[in-house]
């Protein structure tokens, strides 16, 4: 029994000693434990919000950062032009090459088709009797067929439109005639030293030919490749129509009548 008492006392002392020695650690442990619990709770609450924000960012990234990125890229390109060119050059080269190859293939197909059609025995015999055009002209004219897009007959001084033909829809023809006359006057005044007339305005895919007469000029917009044969023929038709108009000035006062004349002498005649 005595021993037991001694033992009990001993245990109590150990217990007390442990309490004294570990009290601080235990406090730290409890505090850490609380902190972890708190963090877990916080994580549970914050996690969905973070997920939501990430999703929002993923969906609206261009809206939030588009301008900044664009600006950054611009600055990068500006500051490192050589590097950018070096990086893009091979890619651009390939793209350009691909486009050219594709267009050449189309052109080649078209030329082959035309050659096949135009160099049949019948066509050669037909051409032999007609004379005029050379073989290259025949192929070119077929592949890049010249088309009369617009015709304007305009009073030379005033720029007032007397008659016209239009294949498609064009902006106000009266205004176009006026502006064309103004541009013509400007170019003639600025560049011509011997009272010469402006005769051609060329664009990439079409051109405007201006044929000047005493009181009128005729502007013809054409697309396609204009070979010498087409030009000669067109010139003949324009001279013919001008002669008719200048012999009978009533055409200049009657727009409908003049429009009919243009159709008959320039458009239908050319398509024959």
């Amino acid at each position: 029994m005595k021993n037991t008492t001694v033992d009990n006392n001993k245990d109590n002392r150990f217990e007390l000693l442990r309490e004294l020695l570990l009290a601080e650690d235990r406090e730290k442990f409890n505090s850490l434990s609380q902190e972890i619990i708190l963090r877990e709770k916080l994580a549970k609450r914050v996690s969905p919000l973070v997920d939501e924000k990430i999703e929002d960012l993923r969906e609206n990234f261009p809206v939030y950062f588009g301008d900044t990125i664009t600006e950054t890229i611009k600055v990068q390109i500006r500051d490192s032009q050589d590097e950018v060119v070096e990086a893009l050059y091979p890619i651009m080269g390939k793209l350009v090459k691909k486009a050219i190859v594709s267009e050449i293939t189309k052109l080649s197909d078209s030329i082959n088709k035309t050659i096949k059609e135009k160099f049949s025995v019948q066509e050669i015999i037909k051409r032999f009797f007609k004379g005029k055009k050379n073989d290259a002209d025949v192929v070119l004219q077929e592949v890049f067929e010249p088309i009369i897009e617009e015709v304007f007959i305009i009073e030379k001084d005033s720029g007032l439109l007397s008659g016209s033909y239009s294949r498609g829809n064009i902006a106000d023809k009266d205004m176009v005639s006026g502006m064309l006359t103004a541009i013509k006057s400007f170019a003639e005044d600025a560049f011509s030293k011997e009272g010469q007339d402006l005769e051609d305005i060329k664009f990439e895919t079409f051109q405007i030919s201006l044929k000047n007469f005493k009181t009128i000029y005729i502007a013809i917009a054409t697309s396609g490749v204009l070979n010498s044969g087409f030009k000669d023929e067109l010139s003949d038709h324009i001279n013919n129509i001008a002669e008719i108009i200048l012999r009978d000035r009533s055409y200049l006062a009657e727009e409908e009548k003049l429009n009919d004349l243009i159709k008959r002498h320039l458009i239908q005649e050319k398509s024959r």
């Binding site: 720029g159 006359t181 103004a182 005044d189």
Partner: peptide
């Protein structure tokens, strides 16, 4: 009456305006 109005830039001083702008005006 269809009026085609040519609004010609400054005409005094030494400005160079093509004389042809004035031709054929009613």
């Amino acid at each position: 009456v269809k009026l085609l109005i040519w609004d010609v830039a400054g005409t005094s001083g030494n400005e160079k305006i093509p004389k042809a702008y004035f031709l054929g005006a009613n």
